[in-house]
Write a protein that binds this DNA or RNA. Structure first.
Lengths: 209, 209
DNA sequence: CTATTCTGAGACATCCGTGTCTCATTCGGC
DNA sequence: GCCGAATGAGACACGGATGTCTCAGAATAG
């Protein structure tokens, strides 16, 4: 069944996102299968890496879809995207580290499309007056993806609790590190939760001890 | 002379930060030397990688020193750190991607020390009321380093102009992506440059076309 | 100008990961 | 309980990167 392949791919990500040069032995062990079965599922290392990348891009594209980033207020859309993308942050971490070494056309095209959607989101937000215009939309896109990857690494290594991931990402990226001098009555607290309290309707996610 | 070694190491970073599996041939060519000379300078691949990591950590430690992150207002200290660290962002990008695969004690110890200094800076800033306390100092440290690495990648690939690097990093990290509803009269614009203009006294850096 | 040192180019052996094979064992269906 | 399919374990050859060597040419000091 296809689920089996995806399970193996996710296990592979867990190893490859931290050590791109990991041997196939290690990946197979992490997936709980033998090297022979790994070879039966994927013709070779190159094919495995490619499929991991494709899985990551499919997940990120799905996150953009479920978040409906093309609709409505850009700030709310970004918050939705954070919630949708954080569960697959490990995949994104892998993509962030390895996307430049691919030379597969399908994957590169898919990558460009997703980045363009992210870019469009920030551009729209700037036109709406929601996002700052002093920072280019391209940089906002890239920095957002870098932080998603950082979330993935931090969660994977146990430095960040999964339940804090979405909040940490959204708050830092949207509001920055500086404490707001006075959060009462700021216009941006009208339709979203204020910066100083947790978003109550984010899903708690499973803890990984 | 030792400068020669560092020159080779910087060339190696330019290749390794994007492709950790690059062959020694490629690294030697990027450094403008032959593979034989590369072997004369560094006993082997492992030693080369290790020295690249050590160089990155030394540079980052030097940036922490010159920025005097232990002194004064935390926000101003962070801005100084940004200016000091951005020129070596490529080194930091390499460290961010590879620091977990080292098992050298010297390097790991040095790494821990620098991260602790960064952590202390954010903790101090939180105690001063400068940085937000809803985000843990550990996450702020990690996210900051991730963004420095992102700056390094973006500049290296030509997606971000070097002259915009420090500004983009400082503004996004400190202020976030959301447009401030009203920047006039905020206490945080008293001792540092306002958010919307570039820092005039940062060094311009050479453009890489 | 000469001698010393350093560098580049190439050849060579070695090591390690990969890809493929076979065979015993186990799981699941009948 | 029997049979087929799938899996795991191991062996083995291949390929490529690495490490080491030699030698010719260039650079530099004297």
């Amino acid at each position: 069944m296809a689920t089996d392949r995806d399970t193996v791919l996710e296990a592979a990500v867990g190893v490859l996102s931290r050590r791109p040069t990991a041997h196939l032995d290690e990946i197979a062990r992490a997936a709980g299968i033998s090297r022979a079965t790994l070879h039966r599922l994927f013709p070779g290392r190159e094919a495995l890496i490619l499929e991991v990348g494709m899985l990551g891009l499919r997940r990120f594209a799905a996150a953009l879809d479920t978040a409906a980033v093309e609709d409505g207020d850009a700030r709310a859309a970004l918050r939705r995207l954070v919630d949708a993308a954080v569960p697959d942050a490990a995949l994104c971490a892998f993509l962030a580290g390895e996307n430049q070494l691919y030379d597969d056309d399908r994957l590169n095209d898919l990558w460009e499309v997703q980045i363009a959607r992210l870019h469009a989101l920030f551009l729209r937000g700037q036109q709406q007056g929601v996002f700052r215009i002093e920072l280019s939309a391209a940089w906002l896109s890239e920095a957002f993806f870098d932080l998603v990857a950082g979330i993935g690494w931090a969660v994977q290594d146990g430095r960040l609790a999964p339940r804090d991931a979405a909040f940490s990402l959204a708050e830092l990226f949207l509001g920055g590190a500086l404490r707001r001098p006075d959060t009462t009555g700021t216009p941006e607290s009208t339709d979203t939760a204020p910066a100083v309290q947790n978003d109550p309707d984010r899903k708690p996610e499973t803890d990984t001890p």
